[in-house]
Amino acid sequence: MKIDCKHVWHHISAYIDGDVDALLRAEIDRHLEHCEICSAILDSTRNIVVLVADGRIFEIPTGYSERLHERLDAAMAEG
């Protein structure tokens, strides 16, 4: 089995998550060795996935936690 670029793109997300079987992984790896487009697509996608996980992207408003627990205390006092 020899896979083309579109086939590789179809599995990018699963590949990043380590969710492809060994055979498919080997095929993709072989393709990546000689295809700089697919390599760059994979690298950029993986990079973006890593950046998105950074806690600084979505910041919590100052005082959020304090206000939340105050509100909970009030609600608990009601029963």
């Binding site: 793109w9 990018i12 487009i37 390599s39 697509i41 690298d43 950029s44 996608t45 990079n47 890593v50």
Partner: peptide, 17 residues
Amino acid sequence: FTPALLTDWREIPAEAL
């Protein structure tokens, strides 16, 4: 759902954030 095509990617480190 076609990705942006490119031929090389320089990793953006987390510090860039």
